[in-house]
Amino acid sequence: MYLVQVVAILGSVLLFGIVIDFIRRGLLKEKYSVLWLAAAIIILALSLKKELLDTFAEKIGVAYPPSLLFLVAFLFVLLINLHFSVVISIFHEKNKVLSQELTLIKNALKESGIDLSGKGKGPGLPDD
């Protein structure tokens, strides 16, 4: 067993535990944890089974099998980042639509005599 395997096993187990704990505490939505969990499981599998790592490394021409772990981890980081960029873009669009809608609604309210700026004396709207 390579020493790096031990580090990878510990690391991936820790990652898995942290992600599960974050989901449990509501810090992370299941939706955004899938790739993290997949990364932890695959790295764990590769570091537990030396033969698996060696065969796989040989197949794709990686001379030093443990470095394959880094490659896999790196690819996952790339994938997760790409996923986040997509998610951010979706949020960006939704945020824009929401803000525009708010802008138009504020205008419609103002035209019907309800001023949300605080200075107006709109009827029936309590402060804050």
Binding site: K96, S99, Q100, L102, T103, L104, K106, N107
Partner: peptide, 12 residues
């Protein structure tokens, strides 16, 4: 006047 609540950029 339509006031954006914060800066959204020229396109928006």
């Amino acid at each position: 006047v339509l006031n954006h609540i914060y800066n959204l950029g020229i396109g928006a």
